[in-house]
Amino acid sequence: MALAFTLDPAVDRTLHDGLVTLWTDVSNAGGAVGFVPPVAADAVRPELVKHLASMTEGRTRLLVGHDANGEVAAAAFLTLNTHRLMRHWIWLYTVMVHPTHQGKGYGRDLMASAAEAARGLDGIEAIRLTCRGGTGADRFYEACGYKEVGRVPGAIRVAEGDDRDDVVMLLPLY
């Protein structure tokens, strides 16, 4: 069964807690979303609050996918570019599908919904994201139509002696 996606849902306690759980579970399953396992919800919560504050300021949009049980199963943040010469593209951050839903095509559905949401924003011509090298995420994003446009070797330190490339990818929308 497909996920039901909502752009800019009202963030109540249930959604807030669902996002914290999603982000924690994805991180602990090895997902490259800003943490390395093990991570506790208490470490994730302040990062979510930063995203929610950006939403309140009108700089970030939230895309959430709920499963058939109404649980948060996927999410991504679309962030407007504030630089006056770069307002024609947006950032896609913290792209997550719950580990129990991996392999069901929900990641592709999330990426397609993010592109659809971006096309609905005035003047947006492309989506830009970065991903951690060595995880296979770049291959997934390529399969979703993104092209690698840059790479910073060793920019992400996962652990002492484990530096990963920061891969920059772009999806033109038109």
Rank of each mutant, 00 (worst) to 15 (best):
A32T: 06
L173Q: 07
M86N: 10
T130R: 05
R87G: 14
K104N: 10
T6I: 09
R139T: 15
A4P: 05
D8C: 10
P99W: 09
Y141T: 05
A137P: 04
L52Q: 01
V39A: 07
Y141P: 01
A75I: 00
W89G: 03
G34Y: 05
G34P: 02
W23D: 00
L129M: 12
G103P: 06
L3W: 03
T24F: 02
F140L: 15
L52S: 07
L80G: 13
G103C: 14
L52M: 01
D122Q: 09
F35A: 08
F5W: 01
D162L: 13
A126K: 02
M169K: 06
G58C: 08
I127Q: 02
A10F: 13
V167M: 15
P99N: 12
Y174T: 15
R119A: 12
D165P: 11
T56E: 10
V20D: 01
C144V: 10
A73N: 02
T79A: 12
Y141G: 04
M55Q: 13
V167L: 10
Y174R: 15
T14N: 08
R157T: 06
N69C: 04
M55C: 11
D122V: 15
D17W: 02
T100P: 02
M1T: 11
G161Y: 06
Y106T: 08
A137I: 08
P153M: 00
L78P: 00
P38K: 02
G133K: 04
V167T: 12
M96L: 11
C144Q: 07
L85S: 13
